[in-house]
Amino acid sequence: MATARGDGTRESERARGDKSRTLTGWVTVAAAHAGAGASTVALAIADAAADTGRGVHLIEAAPPYCSGMVAAASAELGCNADDSWRRGQRGDVVIDRRATDADIERWPAPPRSCHGATVVDLGLLDGRWNELPDDLRCTVVVCRPTVPGIRLTEHLLGLLAEQPLAVAAIGSSRWPGEVTAGLGPRLRALRDAGRVVAVPLDRHLGLTGLTADPLPKAVRAAGGVLVELTATGTTQPTAAMPSRGAHR
């Protein structure tokens, strides 16, 4: 194993990441549909949380073939003992991303330098629920404010009922009439409660993808708003919503 520079975690600890350990307090981010922008939002949350001066642990759960974090670190620190996770450093954010396509057996051990938030980029969960612990609670759902986008968002919110939630909508805060007219009860309730955050669509970022460069200020500011919302522990608003169905 390559020893991680600037990380004091012992090698034996690095090999013992545990998929079953409690995830209470983790900020998790999931895409409601393909191309929603979950990785951008997860990185914005992590960077904003790191502004407190405490190290942040960012984990990308998506397989390597659809990684959005491959170029987000400014330094690569090597793989863990069983070569299942690859670690990188981005300022005060330590990024762990999957090194293989194998199912997640255990979460990477947290680095000793990280005493702040743990942020998990779940990506698109469709067909991958079995990879995740039963108690993993999604806190941020990412979508595009289009008619198909809000339909898929409403579906995912139904699977995540009774969980603390905010929605990050990539694009303008002013939604077209066709979109607002098609809002389902869950997304409408979150919007009415002020828990839908507009994340500006940055053309340059859309062209380059995530890199080691700082995120645009407006995107990072939206990440700060999401940090505050996910810290409140407020559960998803309920407004005559049907009961939760099986998600597996």
Rank of each mutant, 00 (worst) to 15 (best):
V94D: 13
D92A: 15
R137P: 00
A30T: 12
L215P: 02
R203C: 10
R137L: 12
G17R: 03
G206W: 02
A71Q: 15
D192V: 03
A168M: 08
A109R: 06
E228M: 00
R191L: 08
V199N: 05
G6K: 13
A36C: 08
I95N: 10
A75Q: 05
G88K: 10
D121L: 03
G127D: 01
A169V: 10
A48Q: 07
D7I: 14
A99C: 06
D51V: 15
D192C: 00
D82C: 04
L190Q: 03
D96Y: 11
G91N: 13
G25K: 10
E13C: 01
R174Y: 01
T235N: 15
S173E: 12
V140C: 10
R21H: 10
R14Q: 11
S39W: 07
L23W: 00
A50S: 15
Q163F: 04
D96E: 13
V219R: 06
T238W: 02
L183S: 05
V93I: 06
E178S: 15
T22K: 09
I170L: 08
V93W: 04
A42D: 13
W129M: 10
A73W: 02
S74F: 02
D92V: 04
S84A: 15
G233Y: 07
A193Q: 04
G68W: 00
L210W: 07
V196Q: 08
S113R: 15
A109S: 12
E60S: 09
V196N: 07
R90G: 11
M69C: 06
A62Y: 09
E11T: 00
D121W: 08
P110T: 11
T118D: 06
P133K: 10
C79W: 03
A168I: 06
P200H: 07
A36R: 06
T208G: 10
P164K: 05
G158H: 12
R220Y: 12
H57L: 08
L187D: 05
A75G: 01
A73V: 03
A15P: 00
A240K: 08
T208D: 13
H204V: 12
A2H: 11
R21M: 06
D134T: 12
A4V: 01
D47M: 11
T139Y: 02
T238E: 14
A239L: 07
G224S: 02
L23R: 08
E13F: 06
T24Q: 09
